[in-house]
Amino acid sequence: MLYLDYAATTPPYDEVIDAVAEVMKQHYGNPSSLHRMGVVAEQLVSQARAVIASSLSCQPVEIRFTSGGTESNNWAIQATARRFRQRGNHLITTAVEHASVYETFRELERQGFRVTYLPVDATGAVKLEELDKALSDDTILVSIMAVNNEIGRIQPISAIGELLRQRSRTIVFHVDAVQAIGKVPLHPGKLKIDLLSCSAHKLRGPKGSGFLYVRKGLELPPLMYGGGQEGGLRSGTENVPSLVGMAKAIRMAVEEQDRFHAHTHLLRKQLAAAIRDIPELRLSGSDAEGEMAPHIVHFCFPGMKSEVLVHALEEADIYVSSRSACSSSANKPSRVLKAMGFDDARAISGIRVSYSLSQTIDDINYFGEQLQKAVARLKHTITGQPNQRR
């Protein structure tokens, strides 16, 4: 079995599984309880917060726990819009955001906010001049992802942060970093990020846990009301085992980030070469060094629906994705690929391959062989598709 869908979810580290199990068995007290078991649980929560903050070079008070990326994105965007509506009514995002960001902005439009969806170029990148042009006196929020979850394009987050600070000190900058943390260097304070979202299960942590980085001094309204946990911003009894597991996963991922990058960069080069050798396929994104995340490769098989190739590879016990796991069942052209200027034939045929330190060059070579066989079996079903190299 060859699992190549790490951008959808990842197998937890063994150390994470052990840590979660130990806390569930030994430290099941409620962190809000005053007795010793509660105090121990609260100490574990505080320790988890400190470990994550250290990994991101920020302060523990800036880490707010959530159930994952979708909740973090929703909280960041909706809370900012409500909190600063008296300043302005204009929000900016991109046409290629994850559904948890894109659909949140669509809802805010229905509530009367004015939203600008920045276009991207054929590689999936936002242009700084387009953002600069879109900014206005009533802009209160800019939300742009660090790494695109579908094609792996890295956005110029550092340059965007600098531009926003030059234009206005009051514009809130949110970054969906779900596909970035542990893969590419990302320290919110250095990059002038105000809000940053993370999900543990994308970096070998437990599902159902995540966090929102909230820059110290930025006040947001509560997400949920109740017992006053998370500084009164997100009430509810903390999931201590998952928080401990998430902290361990993030620490391990950040510690091995350099090794991860070097290894997956080699895998990416090998995989891209294998895809280029198959005339029917088209690589997505940029060929320039450093513009694509090393752990994601995306390509299209124009004229062939992506799920057909997904299932053809599954017959060889190889598991890839057609797009974001949150929308992979949608039988329609990819919104991200359409925003990049692709026609329907290409936008409905995208395949995402994602991997980690666990995969080898031999795995990638095997995938390339099986991909070539699958394409050869399927290409006769396509009519009128030119058979030429990219």
Rank of each mutant, 00 (worst) to 15 (best):
Ala41Cys: 02
Tyr319Glu: 14
Asn30Glu: 02
Ser356His: 04
Asn89Arg: 08
Gln78Phe: 15
Ala50His: 01
Ala249Asp: 07
Val172Lys: 07
Tyr3Glu: 14
Ser72Lys: 06
Arg323Asp: 05
Glu315Ser: 14
Pro206Lys: 06
Ala288Val: 11
Pro386Thr: 07
Gly228Pro: 00
Ala293Asn: 06
Glu291Asp: 00
Ile92Val: 07
Gln229Glu: 13
Leu164Asp: 01
Gly182Phe: 09
Thr70Cys: 14
Arg106Met: 13
Asp344Tyr: 02
Leu243Met: 11
Ala316Gln: 05
Gly228Trp: 05
Gly88Arg: 10
Ile77Phe: 07
Tyr3Ile: 15
Asn331Ile: 03
Pro294Trp: 05
Val115Ile: 15
Leu309His: 00
Ser356Gly: 10
Val310Gln: 10
Thr94Phe: 05
Gln78Asp: 13
Asp121Lys: 05
Asn387Cys: 06
Tyr213Gln: 08
Ile154Arg: 00
Pro386Leu: 08
Val16Met: 13
Asp344Met: 04
Ser306Lys: 03
Val320Arg: 10
Ile52Gly: 07
Gln385Ile: 12
Ile181Trp: 00
Val178Trp: 14
Ile275Leu: 03
Ala99Cys: 13
Val147Gln: 02
Gly232Asp: 01
His174Gly: 00
Asp5Tyr: 14
Asn74Glu: 15
Phe65Leu: 06
Ala50Gly: 05
Leu220Asp: 02
Ala288Glu: 11
Arg110Asn: 10
Gly152Met: 14
Ile144Asp: 00
Glu150Pro: 03
Asp343Met: 00
Ala79Cys: 11
Val39Tyr: 03
Gly208Pro: 10
Ala8His: 13
Val39Phe: 08
Ala293Tyr: 14
Ser46Phe: 02
Phe84Asn: 02
Leu34Tyr: 05
Ser54Phe: 12
Val51Trp: 08
Ala99Leu: 14
Pro386Trp: 03
Leu243Ile: 07
Arg335Ala: 01
Val310Asn: 14
Val375Trp: 04
Leu378His: 09
Pro11Val: 15
Gln155Lys: 13
Leu118Ser: 01
Arg268Ser: 01
Cys300Thr: 14
Gly152Ile: 12
Ile52Trp: 11
Val40Pro: 06
Pro185Ser: 08
Gln47Ile: 13
Asn149Gln: 05
Ile144His: 07
Val254Arg: 12
Ser334His: 08
Asn73Lys: 09
Pro185Met: 09
Ala125Cys: 11
Val23Ala: 12
Ser32Phe: 07
Ser197Glu: 03
Tyr319Arg: 15
Ile364Phe: 03
Ser197Tyr: 15
Asp287Ala: 09
Val51Arg: 04
Ile77Glu: 14
Leu281Arg: 06
Ala53Gly: 12
Phe65Asn: 04
Asp138Ala: 00
Ile382Arg: 10
Pro386Gln: 12
Lys207Met: 11
Pro156Phe: 12
Ala253Tyr: 07
Leu118Gly: 06
Val61Ile: 13
Ser334Gln: 01
His311Val: 11
Ser100Cys: 07
Ser328Tyr: 09
Lys269Pro: 11
Pro119Gln: 02
Gln257Pro: 12
Ser143Tyr: 15
Leu91Thr: 12
Met304Val: 08
Met145Asn: 13
Phe113Ser: 02
Glu162Lys: 14
Ala347Val: 03
Met37Lys: 03
Leu164Val: 08
Gly189Leu: 05
Arg165Cys: 02
Asp176Phe: 06
Val320Gln: 12
Asp317Ile: 11
Ser55Asn: 13
Ile157Asp: 01
Val240Leu: 02
Gln26Arg: 08
Leu266Gly: 12
Gly217Leu: 15
Met340Thr: 01
Gly245Met: 08
Ala288Tyr: 09
Val96Pro: 04
Arg167Gln: 11
Arg215Glu: 04
Val254His: 07
Leu196Thr: 07
Ser322Gln: 04
